[in-house]
Amino acid sequence: MSTIEIALPQVRKATVGISLRKIVYRSAAIVGLLAVWELAPRLGLVDSTFLPPFSDVMVAWWQLLADGQLLDNTLASLGRSLTGFGLAVVTAVPLGLLIGWYKPVAELLGPLLEVFRNTAALALLPVFVLLLGIGETSKISIVLYACVWPILLNTISAVRTVDPTLLKLARSLDLPPIRLFQKVILPAAAPTVFTGIRLAGAVSILVLVAAEMVGAKAGLGYLVNAAQFNFAIPQMYAGIVTISVIGVVFNQLLVALERRFTSWRRDQLS
């Protein structure tokens, strides 16, 4: 029994049968935004040179897709984001569990972690460039750096806030430390750890795009920046829209994953 135990997912009727009405209702605001975007430049409310109508942006998006630029840049960005994010997950989760478990270590490192967390990753971008150059290593490193903090801090606090009566129960059953960890600490900490992972997911894209704008030859951040430089405004917006969509999709994936593993908690909180 070396598996980490986590509650089995439950299929719930409510989530399966989302009504059409709900979908329409929930997308109303976005449709509204797109309508304004389309109409405002056409009616001359804004200068269409700086904000072309949404349909023009879509045409540019289609062209970028057709000539392969979009795919290349998206893959470049996703590769960096996911590598940095993945590395952050596999290092920060175990590290957080360890730090959270050893109380003196948590207290010793607590203030230091606060300082690092509150130092915006982008403020350190020049340092990364200085030390690692402008290649892939420095981009992945800055994503890794930015993703580590939310995961690490959430994991530490998850372990430290495990219900003390559960720990008492485990102790009264004379559970060995490994079993205690596997059967009590890990499942109890899972929801909070996932929250950290989800935050890191959002951070990974935000930070990467910014990093790509500073010095890169590929990536969505580069695409947006280069388009702006060449005054290809519809292409610039096409890049921005792509980044937004990727961000939303990534977040939804992580939310779905989080739900699967913490279904026991959902109804409890609502």
Binding site: A7, L169, D174
Partner: peptide, 20 residues
């Protein structure tokens, strides 16, 4: 001189594992 399975405890706050 320590906890043991010869004694069972029922806690006031139930102490149930919420994920089970």
């Amino acid at each position: 001189n320590g906890p043991g399975l010869d004694r069972g405890i029922v806690f006031q706050q139930y102490a149930l594992l919420p994920w089970r």
